[in-house]
């Protein structure tokens, strides 16, 4: 039967999976990747990723040297989105194919813990792209800064806190909103602030403190 037949995956995918074989170490040496996607719209099925921005956090420090940024060539194009994020279909940026960007992104993130604001959407966008490449979903653990915020504050309502609102609340100066890299950087800063709140609360910090709430 077809589903029993061992599926063969391209090399980049197998080497991506390789990274998950080693066990995660202590919190301070863990690599987190704050990332954000800019998309043509909010429909994970029909919309497409315009750009990905990502930056690493290790030992409570944001590593600018360890970051990723790409812009993706479009077939589907939604003119309305241009107003928000300024990514014109034929802009001046160097653009790559969606599949190339996914290959690069996987190579970059390895087994790191992904951090995103309202992570479910960004992860779904990447997974949709993976599906178009006939690949399974992302294997990484994911942390949602929106949800951590609610946990740290014991907010019980269902309010949806935008990145803008949280940056305001946490006194983070906003630059480059609505660019993937800019939002990834803001998310990274927000993550650092939330981590230190959690650390205070728990007198120390373990990965489980985050993952408990996912």
């Amino acid at each position: 039967m077809r589903w029993l037949k061992k599926k063969t995956y391209p090399e980049f995918w197998t080497s991506y999976l390789e990274h998950f074989k080693t066990k995660t170490k202590d919190f301070n040496t863990l690599r987190f990747i704050a990332f954000d996607t800019e998309t043509t719209g909010l429909n994970t099925e029909t919309d497409r990723i315009l750009s990905i921005g990502a930056i690493a956090i290790k030992g409570h420090v944001i590593k600018v040297s360890d970051s990723y940024e790409c812009y993706i060539k479009q077939d589907v194009f939604n003119a309305k989105v241009v107003k928000i994020n300024g990514l014109l279909k034929e802009g001046r940026l160097d653009k790559i194919d969606e599949s190339t960007s996914i290959i690069q992104f996987l190579e970059y993130i390895k087994d790191s813990i992904l951090v995103a604001h309202h992570a479910a959407f960004d992860v779904a966008m990447i997974n949709a792209a993976l599906k178009r490449m006939n690949l399974p979903k992302l294997k990484n653990k994911v942390i949602d800064t929106g949800r951590i915020y609610k946990k740290t504050k014991y907010v019980k309502n269902d309010k949806h806190y935008s990145l803008d609102e949280l940056c305001d609340m946490f006194n983070i100066r906003m630059h480059d909103r609505h660019t993937a890299s800019g939002d990834a950087y803001l998310t990274a800063l927000l993550f650092l602030k939330l981590s230190s709140l959690l650390r205070k609360k728990n007198k120390g910090l373990k990965l489980s403190h985050f993952l408990d709430w996912i």
């Binding site: 420090v61 944001i62 590593k63 600018v64 990274a188 800063l189 650092l192 230190s196």
Partner: peptide, 11 residues
């Protein structure tokens, strides 16, 4: 230099 700075957040 900017491509390689580390960013620290301090309470």
């Amino acid at each position: 230099i900017c491509k390689a700075v580390d960013v620290h957040y301090l309470e």
